[in-house]
Amino acid sequence: MNSEIPTRQSSFLLFIRKHNYLLLVLPALLLYTVFIIYPFLNSIRYSFFEWSGVGPMTYIGLGNYHTIFFGALQEFFVRALKHNLFAFVINFSLQTIFGLGLALALYAVTKGSNLYKTIFFLPNTLSTVIVGFLWNLLLNPQWGMVNRFFEMVGLDFLSRPWLGDPKLALPTILAVSAWRGLGFPILVYLAALLAIPEEYVEAAKIDGAKGFQIIHHIYIPLILPTTFTLMTLSFIWTFNMFDLIFALQGASAGPNYATDVLGTLFYRITFGGMGSSATGMGLGAAIAVVIFSVLFPVSYLLNRISKKFEL
């Protein structure tokens, strides 16, 4: 062994020998840092540059952020943000009402709950893009099975241009995404219900509480933490929304940007679209940073709140 640097080497070896378990963390940490953390830090760096993706990058300080908040993109940004919030409210309401409702039903039935669970979760396993294609065919205004079904059963007024009407398009997409995603909150709520100790319910029954009262006074408070966890997930999910809108409406998020969310705005600005020349990798990166800086603190906060409600 080389005698010139004995102390350093041996102290390093000593550290490793003492903390050899750290070697097991290393591969995951390495992959995670290189392919997730590093690109994100780079994103933040890009956001200070004007860069079309080709050619030189020009440092413009907070210029891109100015464009987003006060400049040409303001209208788009505000609208997209509103749509994301709308999506969150709808998604969260649906998963709370139907997710909890169906979970309660599953909790109460004596037979078949395993089969139901499998069925309910099934659409979750399908690719969002493929779900998009499928519903695009089903919602086709003229040939689609949805409108033809309504016409067949005499509900003609429900035969609508679902994906073409600015007022209907986003709710329709959120309904499709609920069709795909509802299985998850159902299962999570069910698990939470099953974890409620029996004594609570028994005690309430002895006090003379009836079906609905039991639900109201025992189950609802006890599943509040679960609701918060699901709320956090719903928030993260709706702020990441992209695939389904992209598959159904393309990056232009039509009609007339009625389905434009931050994800599609990011994609359009970063890569440009058909016939449109508006591309800016720097501007796109700035949007990404904005999305991230909404997402991270809010979901952190929601998570903290949900911890408070835990028993």
């Binding site: 392919f35 690109p39 993706g53």
Partner: peptide
């Protein structure tokens, strides 16, 4: 969301 860092 990894997708947002797609350019870098």
């Amino acid at each position: 969301p990894v997708r947002l860092a797609v350019v870098p």
